[in-house]
């Protein structure tokens, strides 16, 4: 999987390394900004109130 991505990145080794870094940061950003905020309420830490449900 990662080998496949590496082979398909353009440029020499340095360009590939830089692109990999950018890709990794982009993935982390998407996770922190969109995926985790969606997943976190599914955990029990938000239940702090008493209610009828």
């Amino acid at each position: 999987m990662y080998g496949w991505i590496w082979r398909h990145l353009p440029g020499n080794v340095w360009v590939k390394a830089l692109l990999s870094l950018v890709l990794t940061l982009a993935v982390v950003y998407v996770l922190f900004q969109y995926v985790f905020p969606w997943a976190e309420p599914l955990l029990p830490f938000n239940d702090v109130t008493v209610n009828d449900q």
Binding site: V28, L31, F32, F36, A39, E40, L43, F45
Partner: peptide, 12 residues
Amino acid sequence: LIVLFVVYVLFW
């Protein structure tokens, strides 16, 4: 992914 999620919940 799991480590990142823990960082998110505990720290972020």
